[in-house]
Amino acid sequence: MNRYVKLVNFELGRFMKVYIALIGITIISQLAAVIVVSKSYLNNANQAMNVDHMAIETFIEQYGRMSFNDVTNSIFFIGPIALCIVTLLIYSLFIWYRDWFGKNTFIYRLLMLPTARLNVYLAKASAIFLFVLGLVGLQILLLPLERMILQWMVPIDLRWDLSINEMIRNFDRLGIMLPYSIAEFAIHYGIGFMAVIVLFTIIMFERCYRLKGILLGIGYGALALIVFFLPVFVQEFMLYNYFYPEELFMLMLVTGLLVTAGSIWMSNHLLTRKIRV
C-alpha cells in the first residue's frame, strides 16, 4: 500500500509541470472568454442604444439578454477543455512509453522495485484518473467565478442569470462531464476508468509482443468492447427488448466489472511473466 501511494505521488510529480500549464491555460482562456463575449455584447448594445438610438426594450427583443450560454458557446471556453482532454489522452499512452524511450530505460528500475509490478500499473492508472478529476474540480470552481465576472461586466437589465446547474445543463458537453447526480457521475467516470485500464492492457500487449502485440492488443480491445456491450447486443439483435431496463443496467454493471477485472488480471499476468525491457 505504502509503495503504491509513493508511486502515485511520483507519477503525479512527473506530469506536474504540464498539468499546471493546462490549469493555467484553462483559467486564462475561460476568463478571457467571459470578458471577450461580454465586451462584444456590450459594444453591440452601446452601438444600438447610443448610435442607433434604440430603446433598451427593443434591443433586448432583437438581440436577447446575454446569458452564460453565450460564454459556453465560445471557442475560448470549450477550447481549453478540448485541449485538456486531448493532452490527457496522449499522456495515457506516453505515461508508459516515456519509461521505455527515455534517456535511460527507466522502466527497468521501475519493474525492479521490490514491490508487486501491478502497483506500478495501478499507480499510473490512478494518476491519470486523478488528473481528470482534478480538472473537473477546477471547472466546478471556475463556473461561479466566471459568472461573477459576467455579472460585474454586464448590467442586470441586459443579462439573464443562470444557476450553476442551468449553466451545465444548457451545454451538453459539460453535462457529460458533470451529470445530474452522483450516481451518474460514478457511472460516467467508472466507464472512463474502465477505458483507461483497457487501453493500458493494449499497451501491455504491445510491450510484450511488439508488432504482433499491436494486433493482439487491438483484438483484446475489440473483445473488451463486445463483452461490455454484450447485453445491449443481445437486447437489440437476438432477444428483442427481452430485458427490462433495470435488468439491462445490472447486466452492464456486471460486464463492466468483468472487463475491468479481466483487464487488470491480464495486465498483471503480462507484466509479471512476459514483459520485455
Binding site: 503525479l12 486523478l130 482534478g134 473537473v136 474540480g137 466546478i140 470552481l141 446547474n165 458533470l178 447526480s181
Partner: peptide, 21 residues
Amino acid sequence: KLILLVSFTVLVIGAFYIQTS
C-alpha cells in the same frame, strides 16, 4: 501533490453534488 489533488477533488466534487441535490 497527492494529498492536495485528492483532497481538492473530493472536496470540490463532493460539495458540488451536495449543493445540487
